[in-house]
Design a protein around this nucleic acid. Structure first.
Lengths: 127, 127
DNA sequence: TCAACACTTCATGAGTAATTGAAACGATGG
DNA sequence: CCATCGTTTCAATTACTCATGAAGTGTTGA
């Protein structure tokens, strides 16, 4: 990931609704909105726009705007299936952005890395 | 770091000039702008606004605006010394943002973590 | 083919961010 | 105390982003 891409991704994420969409899509809907809750490591089916709209409680047109913003930033991919459009988080892009912040922008600064790895208060370590 | 803080930080970083400022400050100026180049693990002296201005090639007033945006987002701290104001990157806040993206927003998703840890083409691993 | 559905696009208006140059502020040195 | 230097604040302009509702596109099923 280069700087222009990172700037696009940062702009896309700097919005409450879009951050909520990412949060929703990263779990492929196993938190809410998707009926089946399988193990977390299979192929990500994504979530149709309508389900996302009802989850984040925004109008269809507004959601479409935010989804295309995330898609243009490379953070989401869209796939049409029947009359629905399924959106899926691009995990590589998301990781790429974090990698960019950590290693390009912060040059792998040890203090930044340490804080990034640190566990939040009363939470299990994920990294 | 919570969501409002993360949104502020993301907005602050979603700007070319401000990203450049962060990049400049993370090296405490050992890349350019600061005359002495010591080892990277001591106390960070920060960089005065004037030096930052000449490095990123923006007018003083515009720089002041961007610096205070970063400061309000919690990413920078300012310290007045004599007639100059030294700005220093808050590495904990920077790491906290990355931690938030990785573990809150992406829920520690293994694919995201893997991409985040992956080395860039022909670059040493930092994390 | 027609109506319903899922979603996107368009037009419009409101709010917010970015840029510029001038003026103000506080610290320093003569 | 006055001139200067480094920096911030202010006012005005421009540009962008966000939100809303209506109209449009394409798909499905009767």
């Amino acid at each position: 990931m280069d700087q222009p891409q990172a700037l696009d991704a940062l702009s896309a994420l700097a919005n409450e609704t879009r951050l909520q969409i990412v949060r929703l899509l990263v779990g492929r809907g196993h938190e809410a909105g998707c009926m089946r809750a399988g193990p977390a490591t299979e192929e990500d089916p994504g979530l149709p726009a309508g389900v996302i709209a009802s989850e984040v409680a925004v109008s269809a047109s507004r959601l479409s705007f935010h989804l295309s913003a995330l898609e243009q930033a490379g953070l989401l991919s869209a796939e049409k299936r029947g009359r629905q459009v399924f959106y899926r988080l691009d995990r590589r892009a998301m990781g790429g952005l974090i990698h960019y912040l950590l290693n390009d922008c912060c040059r792998g600064d040890p203090q930044v890395s340490a804080c990034c790895r640190a566990v939040a208060p009363s939470a299990g370590r994920h990294l």
